[in-house]
């Protein structure tokens, strides 16, 4: 088995909340806690979850835009940030990111060509080569270079700006693209265009995608595997069809059934979950989902469930006491979630 392109282990990030006269840390936002996952070369890993789950923080930790408090990131077999591994600077030539807000991602004072050429110039390319690369990439993302090189970000529509952001991300010829809600702010008809573009580019440049989104339909469409996060933890990870057809974690199942029905004759009658997602400042003890889980028992408050293979398939791992035979939960089911 080939080693994964990205290996993430024990990733942790807590944000301090300061208060009081001496500005001491009074509490911590436990944004990302003990997150582990791999990304194989050429695959698309979808990351889903609601606000506060830590998916965007995870993306920024991968790019080292913020420094993790603990954990290791191994890129192509080399640990990032270590002398005997790969430097952050070099890693960023091979992994790039596209953000949700297409406007604030671009320097409003730079024409489009300069924005795209910026990265290559920083990494040592000549002005001439960088500009040629920019024009080339604009064409690749479906924008006519003659029309767009001299324009400024405010003159473009949201969809066009996001294409520019994709072109810029590709300028350094990376192997991995992290797309953090990259299509969420676009109108649906434009979203379809940009998703088609991403499919084409992935094939042409042999890319690997980490696709973060709250839109479960889009994630199902683009992903090979899916990771579900809740309050800073990974609750389930596996092949996309396994996750969508047979979710093993109660939260995954609730999230999937919260999608609005597309059939007017079969409308939703009951909300799958009540209340709001809790605060990552003081997460519940043990399993963080237990306060909203219909199957919560005493063991769920005492012990945190570890991510383990779902009994039905090795293509799916779940962190839930119901999935393991000897966890102490009264419903330990090999067959899947109870109704």
């Amino acid at each position: 088995m080939t080693s994964p392109l990205l290996h993430v282990e024990g990733l942790k990030k807590y944000f301090p909340i300061k208060g009081g006269i001496l500005n001491r840390t009074v509490a911590e936002v436990q944004a990302v806690d003990e997150v582990n996952f791999d990304v194989a070369r050429g695959e698309t890993l979808g990351i889903v979850g609601e606000s506060g789950c830590g998916k965007s923080t995870t993306a920024r930790l991968l790019m080292q835009l913020i420094a993790p408090d603990a954990g290791a990131l191994v890129f192509d077999g080399m640990e990032v940030g270590r002398k005997d591994g790969i430097s952050v600077h070099d890693m960023r030539k091979r992994m790039q990111m596209v953000f949700q807000d297409s406007y604030s991602s671009l320097n409003p004072r730079l024409p489009i060509e300069a924005s795209i050429a910026f990265g290559p110039i920083v990494h040592g390319a000549s002005q001439k080569d960088a500009r040629a690369r920019a024009r080339d990439l604009l064409a690749k993302v479906g924008l006519n270079p003659n029309q767009f090189v001299r324009r400024y970000p405010h003159e473009l529509s949201g969809g066009q700006r996001q294409r520019v952001n994709i072109a810029r991300a590709l300028a350094l010829e990376p192997e991995v693209l992290i797309l953090d809600e990259a299509v969420s702010a676009l109108d649906k008809s434009v979203e379809a265009q940009v998703l088609n573009l991403l499919t084409d580019l992935k094939a042409e440049f042999n890319l690997t995608f980490v696709f973060i989104s709250h839109d479960l339909n889009v994630v199902r469409y683009v992903s090979d595997r899916v990771l579900v996060m809740y309050l800073g933890k990974v609750v389930e990870i596996g092949d996309v069809d396994a996750i969508y057809d047979t979710p093993r974690h109660p939260y995954t199942r609730a999230l999937l059934s919260a999608m609005p029905s597309m059939d007017p004759e079969k409308r939703t009658t009951e909300p799958p979950l009540t209340g709001d997602p809790p605060n990552p400042v003081n997460p519940p003890s043990g399993c963080r989902f237990r306060t909203r889980c219909p199957f919560a028992e005493a063991v769920c408050a005492e012990q945190e469930p570890q991510l383990r293979d779902a009994a039905t398939s090795a293509a799916q791992s779940v962190a839930c006491h119901m999935a393991g035979a000897s966890s102490g939960h009264s419903i330990s089911s090999e067959k899947g979630l109870p109704e």
Binding site: H214, L255, A258, M259, T268, P271, P272, L273, T274
Partner: peptide, 11 residues
């Protein structure tokens, strides 16, 4: 709103 809150509000 988040998906699980959205469906509660719609209902």
């Amino acid at each position: 709103l988040d998906a699980t809150v959205q469906i509660q509000i719609l209902l």
